[in-house]
Amino acid sequence: MRRIIWYSLYDLLRSRWTLVYFLFYLALGFALLFLNNDVSKALITIMNIIVVLTPLIGTLFGVMFFYNSIEFTELLLAQPIKRQTIFLGQYLGLSLSLSGSLVLGLGLPFLLYGISSSGSVQEFLLLLTAGVFLTFIFTALAFNIGLSNTNRIRGFGSAILMWLFMAVIYDGLFLIALMVFDEYPIDKFALIASCLNPIDLSRILILLKLDISVLLGYTGAVFQQFFGTTRGMFISLTLLMLWVLIPIWRMIRIAIRKDF
């Protein structure tokens, strides 16, 4: 498996996309810190970007990589290697390289601008953790889509639709639900609904660390009580973990049964 991860990483490095992605975050980090010079304000902007961009990149790279390397995959399938190993290896190769670009690209500028002495290390680490989780989740979902659709156009279409649903449409439906049912006690519903979407979950986890004053309205208090505690943090990290594991499990299940 290690060899397959290595092949995937090498393939990605050679295609330079990882490098571009890394340079993008590097430039972004430096530009933000140069313009703002205030680490905690830069964190808010970065959060906006991470929450939207990492899922998008994860999804698009995921399907692109999957369809591009399909011939290599078929070649590997002819070898005496377990299918599980092949797909898991490719998946890990891609997710690792994407999260590596993210962590290094944002970590370097912030380290140079003195994140470690600014008192917002914890928030920054949470931000990176959320970014890495989102990358792993959406790459896994993209692999699922790739495996389920042999037709590339349909695959790309569904991938973009999935991202759009998670990043935008879900929140729209959520907001409409909140507004329609605002006569009822809906804070529990809001809590559960925001736990079910990994993008919302990461956003709220980070927000509670950053924009706390607004969220401390009485709805915020419910969230603060839940997410602010160690138990809440543990639950939300577990949920994110499930969001990684379930797609991976489904990916392997399909891969094993699929007739290539």
Binding site: D182, A190, V214
Partner: peptide, 20 residues
């Protein structure tokens, strides 16, 4: 305006949909 009407919706603060 939305948050004024439905305070619970504050959980959507800074999401892409809200920006849109």
């Amino acid at each position: 305006y939305v948050v004024n009407r439905t305070p619970e919706s504050v959980v959507l603060l800074r999401s892409l949909f809200v920006d849109l």
